[in-house]
Write a protein that binds this DNA or RNA. Structure first.
Lengths: 180, 180
DNA sequence: CAAAGCATGTAAGCAGTTACATGATTGT
DNA sequence: ACAATCATGTAACTGCTTACATGCTTTG
């Protein structure tokens, strides 16, 4: 999928500028996009061309004009028909897995160091996610269901890294036995 | 990362042709690449250009010549120094998550159908992975450690989809309560 | 005085995808 | 007759990334 529907999703809440959408992507857990300019500004241009959003240009005295995008009825319909379509299965792309697959050529010490380094990275990520989740996400008037769904998605994202961490810890003993 | 190191990994076992490598990627669980021609044949050409592999062309009577690639000492070193480098954290890209984030606009029935459809897909994926794991992977003389590592990676990959499935099932009750 | 925030955008590139192209051989 | 296996390769595309470019304002 592309970032297109995530942008339509945010716009279904309220009108946003590209700059504000960037912040949405930066703040939201469990969206895997960096929210870089090229994609957001580019996607907004195509959405506009295709009539999924309207554009309101608000000039400012000293700053570049704000371009405020508002979703149209056609945009809402596109979002809705995407929602009920079939999802692709999630893909787990883990560099560490690939490394581990050929790590048996390393010495026991190197292997443990490799696993330990990944463990530290994961632990930091878990902390970071938890902190982000604690701060919460700025969203306008959400229904109770929506809030519960977002909480569940967040918790699931955190759990993913926690499971990974547990697995890596279990790997250490598996590998450690072989060391001596 | 790129598929480059995975290819070097396979070649560290033994020499392969591009065609055989394609099958490796198709058979291996927990590698997220499709193993398409463009990538494999292209990567082999660059690996050769850079001296990480040597090439032996074996003409055949009626079929295109087999191009057998063998890893060089320099290729082995490149693989090893990659192994001990720091991994990027795994990224979970889940289309379903994005859909769910804005699914509260759907009716209770639509929502349950959406979740149910994803649940069925996941269940099928889990079965498929288990069947693949049961058949095992054709690899030449592996050490005990290597076999254990691959088993652990496979089990972890299956567990990932099983967790996702558990989560989705728990979502159903969360969503179901809201329906009435 | 530097950093962060506001606000737009572009250039160049990487990694990956599907689909196409060729063509013999063997099994159902 | 049709599909699968063997075996190579190319074309066109999508999605995403980092880094660059501009330039004013507010805060520390």
């Amino acid at each position: 999928m592309s970032i297109r529907y995530a942008i339509l999703g945010f716009l279904s809440w309220r009108a946003y500028t590209g700059y504000e959408l960037k912040k949405c992507f930066a703040d939201a857990l469990s969206f895997h996009w960096s929210g870089n300019n090229n994609q957001i500004y580019g996607t907004l241009v195509s959405l506009h061309k295709e009539g999924a959003v309207t554009l309101d240009i608000q000039p400012q005295e000293k700053l570049p004009a704000r371009k405020v995008y508002t979703i149209t009825e056609s945009g809402r319909q596109e979002l809705k028909s995407w929602l009920v379509a079939e999802s692709e299965l999630p893909i787990l792309r883990s560099e560490f897995n690939v490394r581990l697959a050929w790590a048996c050529g390393l010495s026991g010490k190197e292997l443990l160091e490799m696993v330990g380094s990944y463990e530290r990275q994961l632990a930091a990520q878990v902390l970071m996610y938890k902190e982000k989740a604690r701060r919460g996400f700025q969203a306008p008037d959400r229904t109770d269901l929506e809030r519960r769904l977002w909480n569940s998605i967040e918790a699931h994202a955190i759990a993913f890294y926690e499971r990974e961490l547990e697995w890596v810890v279990s790997l250490k003993s598996e590998v450690g036995e072989n060391k001596e």
